[in-house]
Design a protein around this nucleic acid. Structure first.
Lengths: 160, 160
DNA sequence: TTATATTAGTTATACTATATAATTAAATGA
DNA sequence: TCATTTAATTATATAGTATAACTAATATAA
């Protein structure tokens, strides 16, 4: 009698992820893990997270936008944007002004402190970006951006 | 006196994310959101999530690997792999065999049911991949993969 | 105008993902 | 032997994501 086939007598040494490597989603997740971890460290001195940083940039670049617009721009659900805006407001980086012509809504605006922190953080994020992209030539970067944009815009090719 | 500059009298219509578009991380997050949402729907019929699917594929492709190796291959912390392996084991898709030469460790092996589900799900994920990548030519795909791999491998360029 | 439906923001909630510290048992190695 | 390390686990905390339900206000339609 042979021993059970699925109980090998020797330990596995080299783990292969060849099957998963065929998928863009897997590769993106892995690359994004690297970016997320690095960005986390880069933003920590400013007490910002990826989401609060993103929201701050969008508010600085689009003063007066509403929370629903921010949620849409960030691709997060509206309830989740509330806590992000809360945090930025409590830190005095933005204010919830009354929106013109609609007493339900807020016009989100940066404070001078918010604008300043945004600019400082932006510089740090630019350095982070250049560090992570350092080994990648311009054509590859452009192709990468084009591919990512095609996936993002290909919402009509999604399931259902 | 002029009115306060940061309280515009008109609502903002077009939201610009031009600043963020300059960053690969932002573009990857947005593209990955699309992939994640689609993959979520694709895996739902199999009662798999991205993480359980990934683990199952790795166990099928590397029978006998240990949990620490799986954690390393998946880039998740070891405590978090426990619940993933628990779930796959409770569903009868994998087994925790004793590891050869080390009574502390497990050799993770797929069951026939696990191998079958893995193959079926893989086919669905391949269709999902081709759907999302449909508009992207081969050269762009290759450049994208190269760029993602360069970021992933550029761990030495990380902060600290 | 009144009635109905929709929208903005919020609250509550749940589930998933991720991370760290501490524990147990077993292996390693001085 | 004794100290150290490692594998898996438990407990726990934080963050990200999603849905339902609520309120107040606006828009629509009879």
């Amino acid at each position: 009698m042979t021993p059970p086939a699925r109980m090998p007598s020797r330990a596995v040494t080299d783990i292969s992820d060849a099957t998963l490597q065929r998928f863009a989603g897997y590769r993106m997740k892995r690359a994004f893990n690297v970016i997320r971890d690095d960005l986390h460290l880069v933003l920590k001195p400013f007490d910002l997270r990826m989401l609060t940083y993103t929201a701050l940039v969008l508010i600085v670049d689009n003063p007066g936008l509403r929370q629903a617009q921010l949620a849409d721009a960030m691709d997060v659900e509206r309830p989740n944007v509330v806590v992000i805006v809360d945090e930025l407001e409590q830190r005095g980086l933005i204010v919830r002004d009354p929106a013109p012509n609609d007493r339900r809504a807020y016009a989100l605006n940066p404070t001078p402190a918010g604008e300043h922190l945004c600019a400082t953080a932006l510089t740090a994020v630019e350095r982070h970006e250049e560090r992570l992209m350092a080994g990648i030539d311009a054509e590859t970067r452009a192709a990468m951006f084009a591919g990512l944009e095609a996936i993002r815009r290909g919402s009509d090719r999604r399931v259902k």
